[in-house]
Amino acid sequence: MSETVITVSNVKRVYKTEVGMFKKTKKEVEALKGISFSIHKGEIFGLLGPNGAGKTTMIKLLTTMLIPDSGTISILGMDPVTQHMKVRPHINFILGGERNLYWRLSAYDNLAYFADLYKVPRQEQKNRILELLELVGLADVAHQRVETFSKGMKQRLQIARGLINRPYILFLDEPSIGLDPVSARKLRDILLKLNEQGTTILLTTHYMYEADELCDRIAFIDKGELITVDTPENMKRQTAGVSIIECKLTDVSASMIEELSRLPHVRHVKHEQDEIMTTVRLQTEMPQAVIPEIYKLVDEMSISDLAIMQPTLEDVYVQLVGGDAQ
């Protein structure tokens, strides 16, 4: 068993807000309801869940930006609540989106700025910055202002910024959000490369294929509660014997989706609609029995494709958490 670098034990966190100027109404949101898990050295650990599940709150707690209401957290053997100044030099975090960089500075100056904040000795700074810009493929635009960068370039610069202090643990909160497929691919390659070099990574994402490709283990959380923690392979085994019928329909109504979900032997139905057609995925243990029922229910002319597939991590997610997976 490899060394444990993060331990989270029964952590709870409630946000309290007040609404109204004169007659104030107090509102409480239970973001985390007693979560426990641990992360091993050198792992890529995925934290998955729908919006509002508590993923970002968990990242904030682990990166010393937030204090839990109860429970304990240990990072590299230290308590991030009381020893936050000792924890900070050894970790770093990256947030998704285009912000979180100084757009008026060049890529090089952004990294130099944070190198100073992490007290990287001046003599090491130049080599490290050039090395990181090389890693993320931005060496040739090192002295260009960030405001001229594409979204993908900004996100890769964020990765370089997150590595400026050579962290033992890197936290990423939805790092590929809004990226085109090529940029997202590059980002995943960088993360795998970093992990090969020994960096422990914790990431949150909505993209199941990303989690499936990158993560050694995954935790599903929903409404502040931990649903399950396991490897993607073991999770997919939970759906052993289950098949997915994927139909592409050109004409489908909400009531028809409802009727499909009520068909015998159908466990879950998930649908996605684009401009031309709707893709419906039905989970079932008896695909041969369900397919004729689909043809009875849906006009044959509106079925442009129908296939029986193996379940993906997304189907496990749908089964465990509900129908909001992307």
Binding site: M65, M85, R88, R99, N100, F114, D116, Y118, R161
Partner: peptide, 18 residues
């Protein structure tokens, strides 16, 4: 506004000097 405040505040730098 740039979303960098939380990044800066969570560095180990001395905030007074900063």
């Amino acid at each position: 506004g740039m979303g960098t405040l939380q990044l800066v505040m969570s560095t180990p730098s001395n905030k007074a000097s900063l």
